[in-house]
Amino acid sequence: MNIFRLAGDMTHLLSILVLLLKIYATKSCSGISRKTQELYAIVFVARYLDLFTDFISVYNTFMKVVFIASSLAIVWCMRFHPMVRRSYDRELDTFRHYFLVGASFALALILHEKFTVQEIFWAFSIYLEAVAILPQLVLLQRSGNVDNLTGQYIFFLGAYRAFYILNWIYRYLTEPHFTRWIACVSGVVQTALYADFFYYYFISWKNNSKLKLPA
C-alpha cells in the first residue's frame, strides 16, 4: 500500500459517500444517471469475484464489501425507493449502456492476463469501469446544470483514478516486476474521459460560479 493508492481509495469512498448523502438528504436522484450506477454495480461484482477466495487484507476485504454493497444499494434506491425513483431523469438518461457492457466483455475475451474466468471478469471490470461514467456525463451535458453534490461526486470519482495512476507509476518505479498494463492504460483512458468535466469544474470553481456544461 502506498499513499497514492490510499488517497485514491479514500477519494473513491468519498465520492460514494457524497452520492449517498445527496440521495439520502435530498431524497432525490435528479442529475444522477441510473445507468452509470448499474454499470458500477456490475464492475464491482465482476471485479471482486475473489472476495471469498483470495484474502489480501482486512482493509481490502472491507473496502470490497463496502463498494459492492453501496453500489447495489444506490441502484436499488434509484429503482425501488418510492420518493427517489420519482426524481429519476428517465428521459435524459438514454445512453445505450448495454453496448458498453458487451464491448468491454468482448475486449476482455481478447485482452486479459490469463484465460481464466476470474481474470476475464477482472479485465472486463477494468474496461467497463473506464467507460461507466459515459451515461452520467451525457446526462449532465443534456441537463446542463449540475448541482453541487453531483458535481463533487463526479469530481471525486474522476480524481480517484488519477491517484491510482500515480500509484501505478510509484509501484513501477519501486517494485521490480510490477506491470499492470491493462489497469494502467484503462485507468488513463478513464481519467481522460473526465478531462472536459474537470476543466469546466475548475473554471466554475475559479470564478466561484455555478457549474455549467455547454449543451
Binding site: H12, E113, N167
Partner: peptide, 10 residues
C-alpha cells in the same frame, strides 16, 4: 516463474 500477482488493488 512469472506468477501473475493476484490483484491486490481495489
Amino acid at each position: 516463474a512469472d506468477v501473475v500477482a493476484e490483484h491486490d488493488e481495489l
